[in-house]
Design a binder for these strands. Sequence first.
DNA 1: CCGAGTGTTCGATGAAAATCATACACTCCC
DNA 2: GGGAGTGTATGATTTTCATCGAACACTCGG
Lengths: 111, 111
Amino acid sequence: MAERASHRVAPEHTHPDDVPVQTALAALADPVRVTLVRELADSAEWTRSCGSFDVPVGKAALSHHFAVLRGAGLVEQRDEGPKRVNRLRREEFEARFPGLLDLVLRADRAH
Amino acid sequence: MAERASHRVAPEHTHPDDVPVQTALAALADPVRVTLVRELADSAEWTRSCGSFDVPVGKAALSHHFAVLRGAGLVEQRDEGPKRVNRLRREEFEARFPGLLDLVLRADRAH
DNA sequence: CCGAGTGTTCGATGAAAATCATACACTCCC
DNA sequence: GGGAGTGTATGATTTTCATCGAACACTCGG
């Protein structure tokens, strides 16, 4: 059939424009999610599969965190073969919440 | 004696510079606290006592929220007679987390 | 010095969120 | 098509956090 690579249900995405400030802040208030966002920011787009992140949680929790990040308009996902690869929505998120992402990424550990 | 108005233990304050991003985001991720911050932003400094805010929580919870806001470097308090009056640490917080406060204050309800 | 007003502390309660283990669905490759 | 690899869904457990009620501390004005 004229199908793309995946038969799975495509992940639900929320555009940053449709995200309340509250939701964005809550998403970024969790250390695990911030780690994901930071690692994602240091990688090329669509190169990181969900399982490739160095966080101390099981895959169930990990999957949950990605769902939250999608819901906050921070991450976009696409199925590529058996893996689900990720992309940080830098520009779109920056346009909706100017400065916020940079704040989290820079994260002066000097404190 | 050469004492100020209050004998109470002065409230503990944390300067924004000593606040981790994580803490700041968590503090602003609560709707009640955001209401406090917004009302505070719309008032002259040192004019609002803790009890003067329009939030749907008892005074115990309210007192807790102010403690969190102090710990996040968002609010400064001073005892004035029997009341404790507040001030939003606009400049200091802005210097530490550029753009963050504006983001919360503007809070486009258009979503 | 008492009483009203104000805010904090403490302990308990309830709700929300993070986590895990297990089971399941899908894709690819042999 | 079977099996390994990858991610999701579900249900239970744990932790965290917001909240409340009641008791307490402090200030001020009669």
